[in-house]
Every structure is written in structure tokens, then in C-alpha cells.
């Protein structure tokens, strides 16, 4: 049984689930649960991006824009439209997918850095609308998110949201693993390795790329909705800003593109490190920059692939 689990492709999801269930017994206060929730949320968004970047080899520098759509959906729906939170969240995911579809159709033809700058532009557009349309979004100072009410009981407490975020991440992982080992996953890997070759073997390149782009936008939107629920107050910069997009891509690359646990490791580094570096006060940014550079120089495939490779070497 254990042996089968260890060999299972779902091993990373099992590990994540176990870690999620065990952590509350180790962590001394809700502050740590809050930090862990942030790791889960950003890992989820980064995981979607990892499907796009790691699996299909397509880059997006505007992914926080989709997070913003998900986040503002659960704020605007209940506040302005009288729609309950859960349908609002679903609508946010749907809207995010629709936007990704409409944007992706033309821009996914672009390659490499051209795709990077086009997605960056799309992300900026979303962020700009959220900042400027203040009658809906509260403008740059942001807006409050009404508490989620389920069965007439408000969902509150750091602990509850910790489990919600954790479960969402595990589900996201299982879906990502399924996709990776599906025919679509193989097609996407073929596209990453060579679009021309993929086309020659009969893969509908444009369609597959669009599919994974829309899927990654859905991951980001779910993460955005969760972020909004956990925080209770959202601002355009903290959900959809350009720097947030850069942060997401950094998480994916630091953790290791392609590895399912990569985004989790990357998110953990970028969420926990600033908390740990507060002891250095004014020097924290310098140290953060140094750590990022050192990580990428020493472990150029990213944390998880580099470490697993070393682990295999040692056990082999």
C-alpha cells in the first residue's frame, strides 16, 4: 500500500494533504496558519501558471490580472449586485476564463518575449480598470469583501480558511497531475519542445495553447477569490498589480517549472522569506534579492527539480 502510494503519480498531492493536515498541530498560533494560507493561495495561482509555463512552455507576465478578477468578483457580487458569494466566485472564474479566451486567441500566436509583453499588457489593462472604475471597485484604496455566509452561518476564522485554501490547493494539484499525464498533457509538452514538430504530428497547437491558458486563468481566479475571502479587504495592487504578476512567475521559476511541487516551494519561499527577513530590518530587500539570485544560480532548474535530482543521485 505504502509502496504503491510512493510510486503513485499522486504522491505530491498526498504529501501536500498530509502536510496540510499535520501543520495545525505543529504551528503555534493562527499567525502561522495565516502565513500557510497565503502559501496555499499563491501556490494555487502559481500552479496554474506552471501548467502554462512548465508544461506548455508559454509565458504570462499578466497572471495577477486574473487573480484580480476572481478577487473582485467576490467583493463586487455581494456588495453591488446582491449575488451571494459562492455564485459570485463562480462567475468570477467564468469571467476570468472568458477574458483569457478572448485575450488568448489573438496573443497566443506570439512567441517568447513577445508573448510576455502582450500578457503583461493584458494584466495591466485589468489592473487599470480595477483601479480606475472606483464606483465599482473602490479605486486604489480597494474595497471590503463581505464575509462568506454558508447555511446562514458566516464563515470566519483563520483556521477555517486555512483548511479551505489547503483543500483547494490539493484539488488543484490532483487536477494538474491528471492533466500532466493525459493526452492533452503530452500534446502540451510536445508544443513546448517544438511547435512545428507538434503540428506535424497533428496536434492542434492553437487550441491546446488556448485551453491551457484559460485553465491557468481559472486557477488564478480561484486563488484570487480565496485571497479576497481570507483578507476581507482587497486593493488593485495587492491582487492584480504588475509586481504581483512578476511575483507569481518568480514563484514558478524558483520552485522549478514543470514539477508539481515546484509552485508550492516557490510560493513558500516568497511568502515566508519576507516574514523571516524582518529581523534584518532595512536590509531585508537586499537579502531577498541576493537569495533570489543565489537560488537561480545554484539551482537553475528550480528548487524542487534540483533537489529531487540530488536526492535520486544519492539513493541511486
Amino acid at each position: 500500500m505504502l509502496n504503491r502510494m510512493l510510486r503513485s503519480r499522486y504522491l505530491p498531492a498526498f504529501l501536500m494533504l498530509a502536510a496540510m493536515l499535520a501543520l495545525p498541530y505543529v504551528l503555534p498560533s493562527t499567525y502561522y496558519l495565516r502565513v500557510a494560507s497565503m502559501v496555499f493561495v499563491f501556490a494555487l495561482a502559481a500552479m496554474g501558471l506552471n501548467l502554462l509555463l512548465g508544461l506548455a512552455g508559454q509565458v504570462s507576465l499578466g497572471h495577477a490580472g486574473f487573480m484580480g478578477v476572481g478577487a473582485y468578483a467576490v467583493a463586487i457580487g455581494p456588495t453591488h449586485l446582491g449575488v451571494p458569494a459562492i455564485p459570485s466566485a463562480l462567475a468570477g472564474v467564468a469571467l476570468s476564463c472568458l477574458l483569457a479566451y478572448l485575450m488568448g486567441r489573438p496573443i497566443l500566436k506570439l512567441k517568447g518575449y513577445y508573448l510576455a509583453v502582450a500578457t503583461l499588457g493584458c494584466g495591466l489593462l485589468i489592473s487599470m480598470v480595477l483601479t480606475n472604475e472606483a464606483q465599482w471597485t473602490g479605486g486604489p484604496d480597494g474595497m471590503g469583501v463581505p464575509r462568506l455566509v454558508l447555511f446562514d452561518a458566516p464563515v470566519r476564522g483563520v483556521q477555517t480558511w486555512y483548511y479551505v485554501c489547503g483543500v483547494a490547493l490539493v484539488i488543484g494539484m490532483v487536477l494538474a497531475i491528471n492533466l500532466t499525464f493525459s493526452p492533452t498533457g503530452r500534446a502540451l509538452r510536445a508544443i513546448r519542445d517544438s511547435e512545428v514538430a507538434a503540428r506535424v504530428v497533428g496536434i492542434d497547437v492553437a487550441r491546446q495553447k488556448l485551453f491551457v491558458f484559460v485553465l491557468s486563468a481559472a486557477y488564478a481566479a480561484v486563488a484570487g477569490s480565496l485571497l479576497a475571502f481570507v483578507n476581507g479587504h482587497i486593493t488593485p495592487d495587492s491582487t492584480s498589480g504588475f509586481l504581483r504578476s512578476i511575483e507569481l512567475i518568480t514563484m514558478v521559476v524558483l520552485g522549478g517549472t514543470g514539477a508539481v511541487l515546484g509552485p508550492v516551494a516557490g510560493a513558500a519561499i516568497l511568502v515566508i522569506l519576507p516574514q523571516a527577513l524582518t529581523v534584518f530590518h532595512d536590509y531585508e530587500h537586499m537579502i531577498l534579492g541576493l537569495v533570489m539570485m543565489a537560488c537561480m544560480i545554484a539551482l537553475r532548474q528550480g528548487l524542487v527539480p534540483a533537489l529531487t535530482a540530488r536526492f535520486r543521485e544519492r539513493t541511486a
Binding site: V253, H285, L288, G289, M292, M293, M296, R300
Partner: peptide, 25 residues
């Protein structure tokens, strides 16, 4: 980092810009 992926090199330059900004402040 010679020979690393372009995206890894970009992350290195982002790290460098965070470092330089931190130094400047």
C-alpha cells in the same frame, strides 16, 4: 549562471533589481 534558461536569467535580473533598490534605499 551561463547556460541557464532565459527565464531563469530574467529572475536573476529581477533579483538584482530588488537588491540594487534595497541598497539604494
Amino acid at each position: 549562471a551561463r547556460g541557464a534558461d532565459p527565464i531563469a536569467l530574467i529572475i536573476i535580473t529581477i533579483g538584482a533589481s530588488i537588491f540594487l533598490r534595497g541598497l539604494a534605499q
